[in-house]
Design a protein around this nucleic acid. Structure first.
Length: 284
DNA sequence: TTTGGTGT
């Protein structure tokens, strides 16, 4: 190879490298922007890196998913909502498999199990706020978690309705993080699955009014076995409690003082939860 | 039906 040709090739490699660097820089920038739009103060991270807390972030229209390959389920979903004027949404799209999970989780994987395909990012709220494309994405099987019918159709539904009809109108915008809770010892529950999907023992939902100066938050943990007509405020917990049960660290970009103020205790002032705590469900 | 499954 002549010296000139070698130099030309070198330049080509240099240009290609430049493209890769600029391209991946842009991609990372956009990824960062996207995450900021959907996850106030950072996507949930693990408090210590264990096989059960490791997750990959799946991007969808309207919400993000933290997917665990070990659980074959989501550890969290993150999205934002605001009050909407028009309550009507499109009809329910069909459930869809999600090839990104690698696990073969089909739309019929839950049938006959006694568990519902419970939405983590909810159909109604995502559709009403983020549109039809986002609504379709909520029916990905990666957004489903095995949920007992009495929880999914009643207590959990009442909580999701309270988010849109009662909490969202009180503030400009809400950040919601929600997901499953598994037994403390992985081996105790490792084989308790619907198909490949591990069955949680409870679910959490964190609702934040992301005011820069004085953020406010509510957190709930609801177990699988409920009647469905219980008062919502029976299930209030601190965010610290959710972190202890999940091994996740929420809103880690907050300063230490802000984080402990927001997460250390149950603080219901401003939410008027007593007005919705006993509102009946739509599907008795 | 702002949630779903079952059976056709």
């Amino acid at each position: 190879m002549s010296f000139l040709r070698w130099r030309r090739q070198g330049r080509r490699v240099g240009v290609s490298l430049l493209f890769v660097l600029v391209g991946s820089g842009l991609w990372q920038y956009q990824e960062r922007q996207h995450r900021d739009d959907y996850a106030w103060m950072g996507v949930p991270s693990w408090e210590s890196l264990t096989p059960t807390s490791f997750h990959r972030v799946l991007r969808n229209e309207g919400y993000l998913v933290g997917w665990s390959d070990v659980r074959a389920g989501a550890l969290w979903v993150s999205y934002q909502v605001e009050a909407v004027d028009d309550a009507s949404i499109g009809s329910r799209p069909g459930f869809k498999a999600d090839w990104r999970t690698l696990w073969p989780i089909g739309t019929d994987s839950y049938s006959g199990s006694g568990y519902d395909r419970g939405h983590l990012a909810p159909n109604y709220a995502i559709a009403a706020v983020h549109g039809r494309g986002a609504q379709v994405d909520t029916f990905l099987m990666s957004n489903m978690s095995p949920q007992r019918p009495n929880l999914n159709r009643q207590l959990w539904q009442r909580l999701e309705e309270a988010v849109m009809d009662h909490f969202a109108p009180r503030y400009d915008r809400l950040q919601v993080v929600t997901g499953p809770i598994y037994p403390e010892n992985f081996m105790d529950n490792a084989l308790n699955r619907v198909g490949f999907v591990e069955i949680p023992e409870a679910f959490y939902k964190i609702i934040v009014s992301p005011h820069p100066e004085s953020p406010r938050a509510l957190a709930f943990i609801m177990p699988q076995n409920v009647q469905g007509n219980e008062p919502l405020d029976d299930y209030l917990v601190s965010i610290d409690e959710v972190e202890a049960r999940t091994g996740l660290d929420f809103f880690h970009e907050l300063s230490t003082t802000r984080e402990s103020a927001l997460e250390g205790a149950v603080q219901t002032q401003g939410w008027a939860i007593e007005q919705v705590a006993n509102r009946p469900g739509r599907f008795q």
